[in-house]
Amino acid sequence: MVTEIAIIDVKPGEEAAFASAYRDTGHDLLATTPGCVSAAMHQSNETPTRFVGVNEWESTEAHLDNFRGTDRYARYGAALRPYLAGAPLVEHFDDIMHC
């Protein structure tokens, strides 16, 4: 399993609209993708314009092939991109210890 972390900054004043777009469209596009184990979005208490997506995938390939390489990714971007302040920072992480 691999964890995808996406650090997302949205335009000031667009926090509620971004959260709504994620709830209405983004989450289902991720969560129903083959190979997606879990999908969550968190909003910072200290920096309300910062969100962090934490998604678990069966493998990096499952994410890249089943989501990024499909029309799901285009639809996800179309729903959320209008609210972004810049490109998200996205990386994949392997679990070295889980409790």
Rank of each mutant, 00 (worst) to 15 (best):
M1H: 11
V2W: 09
T3E: 03
T3I: 15
E4C: 05
I5V: 15
I7K: 13
I7F: 09
I8C: 03
I8T: 09
D9Y: 08
D9C: 03
K11Q: 15
P12I: 01
G13R: 03
G13H: 05
E14N: 10
A16S: 14
A17I: 00
F18D: 06
S20D: 12
S20G: 07
Y22E: 00
R23P: 01
D24L: 07
D24I: 01
G26Y: 10
H27L: 08
D28A: 11
D28I: 00
L29A: 04
L29V: 03
L29M: 08
L29E: 04
T32F: 12
T33Y: 12
C36I: 02
C36V: 03
V37F: 09
S38T: 14
S38M: 07
S38L: 07
A39M: 05
A39N: 06
A40K: 10
H42E: 00
Q43L: 04
Q43N: 09
S44T: 01
S44C: 07
E46V: 05
T47N: 14
T49K: 12
T49S: 15
R50Q: 13
R50G: 03
R50I: 05
F51A: 01
F51T: 01
F51E: 01
V52E: 05
V54A: 02
V54P: 00
S59F: 12
T60C: 01
E61G: 03
H63N: 11
D65Y: 04
N66H: 08
N66M: 05
N66Y: 02
N66I: 05
F67K: 10
R68I: 02
G69E: 11
T70P: 04
T70E: 08
T70Q: 08
R72I: 02
Y73C: 10
Y73G: 00
A74E: 14
A74N: 11
R75Q: 14
G77Q: 06
L80S: 05
L80E: 02
P82K: 06
P82L: 06
P82D: 08
P82Y: 10
Y83Q: 03
L84A: 11
L84P: 01
A85V: 00
A87G: 02
P88Y: 14
L89G: 05
L89Q: 12
L89N: 09
E91N: 12
H92C: 04
H92S: 09
F93K: 02
F93R: 04
D94G: 13
D95V: 15
D95T: 15
D95L: 15
H98V: 15
H98T: 15
C99F: 14
